[in-house]
Design a binder for these strands. Structure first.
Lengths: 237, 237
DNA sequence: CCTCATTTGTCCGTATGTATT
DNA sequence: TAATACATACGGACAAATGAG
């Protein structure tokens, strides 16, 4: 039926994008066009496109058309969120791992950007720290702004994605617990360290920030395990 | 029709997994069951499941059933590969960013594992270095084995995924170019540094390893740009 | 504002291939 | 081997959304 047996419709659509050298934003062939291009039924084409949409490889606009996507990492957020939530121990272990990866990335990056922060950026960072008490998005913006100048788009999206997942699943596990004062202090220490232009000081400030986050997770562990002894393998079907 | 208007079939299936506390490996309801559970047709259910499969949230076994997945990161490899390949400049920039993230992770991790490597692990690492000349998978196994003991499953999968993407798209951009001698030397230097139990030495050895990789990418840039002046936005449709 | 063509979204019915028992 | 349960695939039809005239 298909050109080759081992090649799925999904893969052949990706091949088509590469062969025609379609760039993100370019219009994809319509469903009927793909049907006779690939020799598949409409349902098969649609299912393949749905999978590609989930991966951010195409974007679908109802009633208008399908377009090549940019495979931004934030489409993978549901996958990571699910992975963390269904991890062993109710996800606390996975959440800890997640924060540790963020720490690894940010403690490494902070050494690269120290000394390259302009006065205008310092002002913006200060403003974000001040607004952190009432604006829940200031934290995310702070970390994004820190590494904006390093020119690595991938690591920026990775850190943003990890932030999203952490706050999404963290809200499910152990809600409020007001810690704004400590959070503000931790971030202010990072800015101060950057102002000192000293690499090791900046790294240490970043480590302290994440030490607090990890402590918060460990606390959430003891309060969420109490009513979840051991979720057995699901029985009914 | 649906319980709420703004909630998609896909999201409601994920809700269902969480509500029933289904763990990875547990059987999902069959398609007919999902149809009347969600009040949707077979096609809608199937398309939603396809998207969830692409994200690794469910696993489909043909002729047998659908099961809860573990959302392993390697299902996201096609997305990252696509992102790199369609990046600006034919993907060399994105490839550089990718390797830089790997460097960030591994130079940070190597400091954590130094001093925790047993004699048996040293022997295994030596064997992998020796086999690196003819076994193409030894490189990947080497980096995986390095951080196996740190207990962070997420970072292990991340490094593995980045390795896969790098070699997959790297093969498309700038093929062979024999560099095994240098590669072997770089990895042997890492093992030697670990034997010295010195954190800074190990980090430096890791940095040298990635300096070579990044140089190789820069070389691939000059040889692939020559016949790709400026790919315009796609015109025909 | 309305109409129209285009495109994606949903649904139905049916037939076929596949793995388990 | 046979039966059963399941996913896979196909074709046709209508609904909903978008953009152009």
């Amino acid at each position: 039926m298909a050109r080759r047996a081992g090649t799925t419709v999904q893969d052949r659509i990706v091949e088509l994008i590469h062969d025609r050298e379609l760039l993100p934003g370019a219009p994809m062939p319509t469903e009927p066009q793909l049907m006779d291009l690939l020799g598949a039924s409409r349902n098969s084409v649609r299912e393949a496109i749905r999978a590609l949409q989930a991966l951010g490889i195409v974007e679908i606009r109802h009633g208008y058309g399908t377009f090549v996507g940019r495979a931004s990492l934030d489409v993978l957020t549901p996958s990571l969120t699910f992975r963390v939530r269904t991890g062993p121990g109710g996800g606390i272990r996975a959440l800890h791992d997640l924060v540790e990866v963020r720490e690894l990335l940010e403690t490494g990056l902070i050494g690269d950007v120290v000394g390259t922060v302009s006065e205008a950026r310092f002002a913006a960072l200060d403003a974000l720290v001040n607004g952190m008490a009432h604006d829940p998005g200031a934290d995310r913006a702070f970390h994004a702004l820190l590494y904006e100048g390093c020119g690595n788009e991938l690591v920026l999206q990775l850190i943003g994605m990890f932030w999203d997942v952490y706050h999404e699943v963290g809200g499910v596990l152990a809600p409020p617990e007001d810690r704004t004062a400590q959070t503000v202090a931790n971030h202010r220490r990072i800015v101060d360290a950057l102002r000192s232009r000293d690499r090791d000081t900046a790294r240490e400030a970043m480590r302290l920030h994440f030490r607090d986050v990890k402590q918060r997770i460990a606390r959430g562990l003891s309060s969420s395990v109490e009513r979840q002894p051991q979720p057995e393998l699901a029985a009914d079907r």
